[in-house]
């Protein structure tokens, strides 16, 4: 369709427009499936399918968003720096929280892989799913997984975290803002962290910290976990 190959802004317009629309709906109706991140992804996918637009074409028009992702991730150091006193005071709890999260993630993937009878390749493809995409790809590749398949799984994890974090904290009575941040960051990397930042300053800072720390611990632990199945 010429209309979409000759113009540039539509990719961004659809992404941002559906994000804002869904955010508005969610504020009115507290229904977790109206998650802006999930909704705008599905909406954009449907748009591409309906108008028969190639993903490549869409991506070429909106990849400048992707170039901003690295500087934005770097900026996560800012909320963390602003809460440095909270971190210093609770360093022990924070460290154990993140370590337990990483072990829970890898342990539960091990159990599920055995349950579903996955191949070793699929197991290591899933293993780093809770950490930020760039590191997860590296881990998956290093261990002999399919890194291009790790990325969509990491993204699905991030969207899930973004969707369920408020409900999970409520159901399991996680009320402490530090604990909330650590939980969200360890489980659902930077995508979940965007939700933690919305929740509050402490939550955002602790979630930002968890991305980096959980990523590094996962790299180390994966060398052990790769031998388990």
């Amino acid at each position: 369709m010429d209309m979409f190959t000759e113009t540039v802004c539509w990719g961004l317009l659809i992404s941002v427009g559906s994000y804002i629309l869904c955010d508005y709906i969610q504020r009115k109706k507290h229904f977790i499936f109206f998650n802006p991140l999930l909704f705008s992804t599905i909406f954009s996918i449907l748009f591409l399918i309906i108008f028969k637009i190639d993903y490549e074409d869409y991506y070429n028009k909106s990849d400048y968003l992707y170039y901003l992702l690295s500087p934005a991730t770097v900026c996560l150091a800012v909320p963390l720096y602003e809460q440095i006193n909270v971190l210093k005071k609770n360093i022990q709890a924070v460290c154990w929280g993140i370590i337990s999260g990483v072990l829970a993630s890898m342990g539960s993937i091990l159990v599920f892989s055995i349950m579903f009878g996955f191949s070793h390749t699929m197991y290591v493809t899933l293993l780093p799913k809770s950490i930020t995409a760039a590191i997860a790809m590296g881990v998956s590749e290093e261990m002999g997984g399919i890194s291009s398949l790790t990325v969509p799984i990491v993204i699905m994890t991030g969207i899930t975290g973004h969707m369920v974090s408020e409900k999970v904290c409520k159901i399991f009575k996680i009320t402490d803002p530090i604990a909330k941040g650590i939980a969200i960051g360890s489980a659902s990397h930077a995508m979940g962290t965007t939700k933690a930042i919305e929740m509050g300053e402490v939550e955002g800072a602790m979630s930002s910290l968890s991305i980096a720390v959980a990523g590094i611990i996962t790299v180390i632990c994966s060398f052990v976990f790769v031998h388990f199945y």
Partner: peptide
């Protein structure tokens, strides 16, 4: 930041 993930997620 949330919208920066959308192009990759659509992938």
């Amino acid at each position: 930041m949330p919208i920066l993930f959308i192009p990759s997620a659509v992938g």
